Simulated assay, not measured.
Amino acid sequence: MTDQRTRNLILVAGMVAMLVVGAAIGMMISTFRTGGDEAAPSAESVDVGFAQDMRMHHLQAVTMAGIERDRTDDPMLRGIAFDIESTQLSQASEMAGWLTVWVQPSLPAPGAGHMEWMSEGGTHSHSNGEGGKTTGAVQRMPGMASTDELNRLRKASGAELDVMFLQLMLRHHQGGREMAEYAAQHASKGYVRNLASKIVQSQDSESNQMKTLLAQRGAKPLPAS
């Protein structure tokens, strides 16, 4: 029990350090690049919309990965969950740093829609979070788990927990890819495009791994949302 408590304290300390370092890196990058005659992106820009929406998307992944890390009996899945948790927490903190320098909220306003920054004046369609397409804002981003799904994940254990985690996280990765891919192509800031490209690459690799792990457990991916 003492050893577990010590490990948990070390993990918490590590996560806090990642939050601080990630935010500091984001602020330094933004301050350095958004100087001179280069204006900060506007609230309606791809850069701000992506940073706010992807932060919210990432933070749910951090929550799900933390549940799996704490409760799984599978060392491989514990490692995968920790990698996802630490990577996405660091990236979310970096985006928070950008938003601070841009003088923008770190998350979308409560009740506000998402992904409208991908609409290009109503000419570009994107996922609506319900398996269809739209050219406007959505209330639920693709891949996001529902409150009921999160509650069931928290209550699950053993093989059921592992399969549910893999299914929810795979769908989560697949749902967030569209936002990252769009930002990688359309954001005005090079450092935003760079992080978005890294998210696409890393989550594609993790998605392929999770598909394999699901197949090994005789389970299938969830339908896209």
Rank of each mutant, 00 (worst) to 15 (best):
T72P: 11
V48Q: 10
M76A: 14
V200F: 02
G175W: 00
T87I: 07
L168K: 00
M28P: 07
T87C: 04
V48E: 09
L195K: 02
F82T: 15
I80W: 00
A23S: 13
A17E: 12
D162V: 12
G176Y: 00
M64W: 00
S119A: 10
T31I: 12
A183V: 09
A13M: 08
F82C: 12
L150T: 03
E206I: 01
Q209G: 04
V16P: 05
V20S: 10
D47Y: 08
L166Y: 01
R7H: 14
P105A: 10
S225T: 04
A81V: 05
V48K: 03
S30L: 08
M169F: 01
A137V: 13
G121C: 15
D73G: 15
K211D: 04
A159Q: 10
A112P: 13
A224P: 05
V62D: 01
Q167S: 03
L59P: 01
E120I: 10
A219H: 04
S197A: 13
N151R: 04
K189W: 13
A159W: 01
V48H: 08
S86W: 02
D3H: 07
M1S: 12
T87R: 00
E68C: 14
S202C: 00
Q216L: 09
G22H: 03
M144P: 05
E160L: 06
G66N: 13
G49M: 06
L11S: 12
Q104E: 11
N208T: 03
D3T: 13
A196Q: 05
M164A: 09
P142I: 02
F32P: 08
Q167N: 02
G26N: 04
A61T: 02
M95N: 11
S30T: 14
A187P: 09
D37K: 12
A92L: 08
S188D: 15
A24H: 06
Q201N: 07
F50W: 08
G218N: 03
G49H: 01
E206R: 02
P105Y: 09
D148H: 01
R55P: 09
A13T: 09
S125W: 06
L214M: 05
V46S: 01
E149I: 03
V46G: 03
F165M: 03
R7A: 15
R69H: 15
I25A: 06
L195Y: 04
T34N: 13
H126T: 07
A23W: 05
V163M: 06
E85C: 06
A51E: 12
V138S: 06
